[in-house]
Computed example of a mutant assay.
Amino acid sequence: VTITILVHLLNIASQFAKDHFARMARKKLQKLKNLRVIGITGSYGKTSTKEILSQLLSHKFKVVKTPKNINTDIGISRFILQTNFKDYDFFVVEMGAYKIGEIERICDIVKPEIGILTAISPQHLSLFGSIENIQTAKYELLRYLPKKGLAITNSDNKYCREFLGELKCKVLTFGLEEEFKPNCLIEDMKETEEGIICKFTRNLDGQKMDIELQTKLFCDYNISNLQPSLLTANYLGFDNEEMKEALKHVVSPDNALKIQKYGEAIILNDSYNSNPDGFRVAINNLTKYSHQYKKIVITRGILELGELSDEIHEQIGGEIAFVADELVIIAPDFVEPLKKGVGTKYQTNVITEFNYKELLNYIQKLKNQKAVILLENRMPQIVKEEVEKNT
């Protein structure tokens, strides 16, 4: 009983502190009449979109953003209280949530004028209980926007599309599927040594325009992170030439998939975090390498997928089997569904290696081989250090 009371008192104290920081942060921002706020949320792509958008807008404006992956009400409030916003034009805020109501709480603090919803997927399904609850939580940003605000979201994603008609503000969409009539459509993507070249079709107010863009971004999914940034920049007055010039200075975010030379081998480093769609994109990147390369996927799987976890891991196992020679599973949680998905059809070898020193030894042996190694989701510290030291 004593412990229960103590925990309850600590929770009250913690909530009091959060409320206090939130009130102070809100008051501080309310005094900054010229600072405009852009909120970004979604099941994935939040951090990359924040980084790309901030780089793009910095060509014309002074921009401050929430650092790294700070995206909770308390983290954002503290950042606001520690930051001098003098002379800044825009504040780009990444908004995360683990339950309904958390994004609305952040919106109450920062009062966004523009909101970007990147995607809605089963990420954190075990915390939310259902995809509908995730949708409700993410939509809090778009529903909060003022009548004169702007909502930007992903028309390829059915959960993002579903309630757009209920919003009171202007809505713009982006996507790769023409059938959903996005305002920003990207086509004809080609990856070069400098980055991806693509055709940006802008369809606004009945006026259609095609622009060829040279980017310094790599991997297709970064183009999906670029699209809402292009729409935002266009809305804020960037013309075509300014957009092209600004893109010369936009590079792939640190958390994006990196292609790293590791001796004779190549590492596709996607170890920042993982989600089902991002994992699939990373697997697809293996197909760009010839059969001369041994193709290997090293992963622990994806956490917090709730009741869909086995089904999703089976599907991913099947996609790995189609392109990879070897799958190395480094944690026990999802061994069975991944193995079941791999099956026997394509003779993909499956290894389970939970001993991190043995895993390091396995990776070091690949250094002098013609191999492509996908590191998907968080890696043990000794593996991270090996990659940092040798690439």
Rank of each mutant, 00 (worst) to 15 (best):
252 S>M: 06
292 Q>H: 13
32 L>T: 04
251 V>E: 08
101 G>Y: 03
168 K>R: 11
200 F>A: 15
201 T>A: 00
19 D>C: 11
108 D>W: 07
79 F>P: 08
8 H>Q: 12
77 S>D: 09
20 H>T: 15
234 N>P: 00
172 L>D: 01
129 G>P: 03
8 H>I: 11
192 T>V: 05
137 A>D: 02
38 I>Y: 01
95 M>I: 07
112 P>H: 06
187 E>P: 00
31 K>F: 04
54 S>D: 01
285 N>L: 09
180 F>S: 02
185 L>S: 07
27 K>I: 12
86 K>Q: 14
111 K>Y: 12
28 K>Q: 13
185 L>M: 08
168 K>C: 04
206 G>N: 10
192 T>F: 12
32 L>G: 01
299 T>E: 01
162 E>T: 08
121 S>V: 09
161 R>Y: 02
258 K>H: 08
38 I>T: 06
90 F>D: 01
322 F>Y: 12
108 D>A: 11
234 N>K: 09
372 V>W: 01
84 N>A: 09
380 P>H: 05
2 T>W: 11
217 L>W: 06
252 S>Q: 06
104 E>Y: 12
64 V>F: 03
114 I>E: 00
94 E>F: 05
43 S>A: 06
145 L>V: 07
256 A>C: 12
20 H>N: 14
163 F>V: 02
224 S>H: 08
61 F>T: 03
282 A>L: 05
260 Q>T: 05
292 Q>C: 09
89 D>V: 07
268 L>N: 07
88 Y>P: 10
177 E>N: 15
54 S>H: 04
58 S>E: 04
154 N>A: 06
362 Y>Q: 11
267 I>V: 15
56 L>M: 07
344 T>Y: 13
44 Y>A: 15
340 K>F: 10
98 Y>P: 01
326 E>R: 10
332 P>D: 03
81 L>F: 03
387 V>Y: 00
1 V>Q: 11
354 F>L: 13
234 N>F: 10
45 G>P: 05
228 P>C: 05
233 A>W: 00
23 R>Y: 10
66 T>G: 06
217 L>V: 04
178 E>C: 02
278 G>S: 15
323 V>F: 05
65 K>Q: 13
153 T>I: 01
34 N>F: 05
319 E>Q: 14
215 T>N: 10
329 I>S: 04
291 H>I: 08
197 I>A: 03
340 K>Q: 14
378 R>Y: 11
181 K>R: 11
93 V>G: 06
207 Q>Y: 05
86 K>D: 14
124 H>V: 02
217 L>N: 07
69 N>S: 15
92 V>I: 15
177 E>M: 12
220 D>E: 14
210 D>W: 03
